[in-house]
Amino acid sequence: MAAERLLRILSLLAERDGSGVPRLCDVAVEVTAVSGAGVMLFADGRPQASLCSTDDVSLLIEEAQYTLGEGPCVDAHRLGQVISEPDLGGANCARWAAFSREAFDAGARAVFGYPIRLGAARLGALNLYRDQPGALSDDQHIDALVMADVAARAILTAQVEAASDHLGAGLDGDMNLWAIVHQAAGMVSVQLAIPVADALVRLRAHAFATDRLVAHVALDVVERRLRLDIDE
């Protein structure tokens, strides 16, 4: 029964005078019984912010997708459909060349992306992972669908009372906007006299070429241990 699933999620999220946003990832893990979960928000077709993640593996799954621009969350958002990769280590898993390896090395064996949207509004995607290979059961799948719907409503509800150009209370708390990557992009843009958008591409390319996360490369730039014009 969809109503019972929804009721369970709402009662787990429920908090007096709140949107439930801070608990979205924890509740997603609890209702779907997977190893970990994360919620990513998109802007201009790219993942731009992580709202929450439940553990180090989920965090790395998000970092890798942010760096590489590929993965279950990215596909779920772009295609507007559920993405399921039940065996990351399998011979047939060539869907995401770079991401699959990163996620596998981090300990994920199966990954899933559920679009977070409401009507025509596309917000981002819910990432789920398991530390063992295997597809989600029908029950887990339906719970994840309801969870993604609740997430969309909870996130937009949190934004209702926000002042213009500000994030809603509840969204701001644990959100990771990869601030350091944008700081580094600003610096590289001045160093190389190129637009900031191009500087972001250069940072990601450097991260890919050196097999590192873009956030780690960005930290080196901001702490002035690395200049892309000298290195490349």
Binding site: A120, L156, Q159, S164, H166, L177, A179, Q183, A185
Partner: peptide, 26 residues
């Protein structure tokens, strides 16, 4: 939903360009 999502994206972008501007100034 669509209006709120646009406002959310605008708020995210504002936060992002502030970080980019900080980097340029630094």
């Amino acid at each position: 939903a669509q209006t709120l999502n646009s406002q959310l994206s605008a708020a995210l972008n504002t936060r992002i360009v502030i970080e980019q501007a900080k980097g340029k100034i630094a």
